[in-house]
Simulated scan of single mutants.
Amino acid sequence: MTRPALIPPLALAAAALATAAHAEIPPFTAQCPTGITVTWDPAGNVRVNGSPASVRMYNQQYFEATAGGITFPISTDQDGSGLLVGFNPPGSAGGYCTILSQGSDQPDTTAGADGPDHFQVSGASRLNVRSAPSTSAAIVGKLPAGTVVENLGCRQTEGRDWCHISDGDASGWAASEFLSEASGPVRAPRATPVGQDNAANHTVQQVRFPRGSTGTEFTDSLDPQVSHRYVLGARNGQFLYFRLAANGPGMTYVIYNPDGSVLLDEMSSDREYRGQLWQSGDHIVEVHNTANGRQSFNVIFGIN
Rank of each mutant, 00 (worst) to 15 (best):
G184M: 04
G184N: 04
P185S: 07
V186I: 15
V186G: 02
R187S: 11
A188P: 00
R190C: 07
R190N: 12
R190Q: 10
A191E: 15
A191T: 14
T192H: 04
P193K: 04
G195L: 00
Q196D: 13
D197Y: 07
N198R: 13
N198W: 12
A199S: 13
A200D: 15
A200M: 07
N201T: 15
H202E: 10
T203S: 11
T203D: 12
V204G: 05
Q205E: 13
Q206S: 06
V207E: 09
R208Q: 15
P210W: 00
R211P: 08
G212C: 06
G212H: 06
G212V: 10
G212M: 04
S213K: 15
S213W: 03
G215C: 02
T216P: 07
T216Q: 03
T219Y: 11
S221Q: 12
S221E: 15
L222P: 03
D223K: 09
Q225T: 14
Q225A: 12
Q225P: 05
V226I: 11
V226D: 02
V226Y: 05
S227F: 01
H228S: 03
H228V: 02
H228A: 02
Y230T: 00
Y230W: 00
V231H: 07
V231A: 13
V231R: 12
L232A: 12
G233W: 07
G233R: 15
G233D: 14
A234N: 06
R235I: 06
N236C: 04
N236G: 08
Q238S: 08
Q238I: 05
Q238R: 02
F239H: 09
L240R: 07
L240D: 06
L240Q: 08
Y241K: 10
F242T: 04
R243L: 05
R243C: 06
L244W: 00
L244N: 00
A245N: 14
A245H: 09
A245G: 02
A246C: 08
A246T: 03
N247A: 06
G248H: 01
G248Y: 01
P249N: 13
P249M: 06
G250Q: 08
G250A: 09
